[in-house]
Design a protein around this nucleic acid. Structure first.
Length: 253
DNA sequence: AAGGGTTTCAACCGCCTCTCA
DNA sequence: GTGAGAGGCGGTTGAAACCCT
């Protein structure tokens, strides 16, 4: 009947006591972390191994940063969430000392309401004019020329930022995937492009709400020219995602 | 002060992926 | 190549804290 339960009966649940915390900290300090399933028994804790892992990673780890999320951190969370979606662990990797659980909670309690249903309305950092380089549609199409023509359909699936094995990255896990933002960390900029994905033979592709150099609202509404075939879209997205992956240093070692 | 509603966040649950024999 | 076990992850829950009347 499926997998065996990860936790044996009789383990403690709920909030951790100070004594339990001390036992876990002492054990990990002397033996290191890992082997979570066997840890409770070895440490003498009446806890599930996964519970120990979670307690350590989310609360007891010495490098946990306590205190409120700063404005900079919030801004980064917003931008990364726009790019990565609910991939809290990935987002947390970009915020030293913050845990995926903390970021997830922060998003759900503070930011979700703010941005729910507000595509392309994310705050933008004003940038010097020379840094603004919206993708040109003509360039997009030119890039799509290299696409493997034999590939005719892409099943909806989760895209991966890892590019080491899949030369052609495959979007998308949602009805839409939005590059909503202009990433501004380091020297890499991801232009503010909205890729609307429609399941079927074609994707409707259009750039929207591009924050131009002047800051003026653009009027690039979808048109015939904006429609590209799915595999072309794949190529474009692949190119963009590689840039993102490179920027985020998320590619496989 | 009381109590009812709302918010917060630590912890749990269950599925997915990875690793190794 | 395959299956089992362990780790990782995102969604969800629920107790405690907080707020409002």
């Amino acid at each position: 009947m499926g997998r065996s339960p990860c936790c044996a009966k009789g383990v403690n649940k709920g909030a951790w006591s100070l004594q339990e915390d001390e036992i876990l900290i002492n054990f990990i300090q002397t033996h290191g972390q890992g082997k979570w399933r066997s840890l409770p028994q070895k440490a003498g804790l009446k806890r599930c191994g996964k519970s120990c892992r979670l307690r350590w990673l989310n609360y007891l780890r010495p490098d946990i940063k306590r205190g409120d999320i700063s404005a900079d951190e919030e801004d980064l969370i917003i931008r990364l969430h726009s790019l990565l979606g609910n991939r809290w662990a990935l987002i947390a990797k970009r915020l030293p000392g913050r845990t995926d659980n903390e970021i997830k909670n922060y998003w759900n309690t503070n930011l979700a309401k703010k941005f729910h249903g507000k595509k392309s309305k994310l705050p933008m950092n004003p940038k010097p004019a020379e840094d603004k380089k919206p993708i040109e549609k003509s360039k997009m199409k030119a890039e799509s020329k290299s696409v493997n023509e034999s590939e005719t359909s892409i099943p909806p699936q989760e895209f991966r930022l890892s590019t080491s094995q899949n030369e052609n990255l495959v979007p998308v896990d949602d009805d839409s995937f939005n590059f909503l933002m202009e990433i501004n960390v380091g020297d890499v900029f991801i232009p503010d492009v909205d890729f609307s994905y429609t399941q079927g033979d074609q994707m409707n592709f259009h750039m929207s709400n591009i924050n131009h150099v002047t800051g003026e609202e653009n009027d690039l509404s979808p048109s015939e020219d904006d429609n590209v075939h799915e595999h072309e879209m794949k190529c474009v997205l692949s190119s963009e995602l590689k840039r993102v992956a490179s920027f985020l240093e998320l590619e496989d070692e």
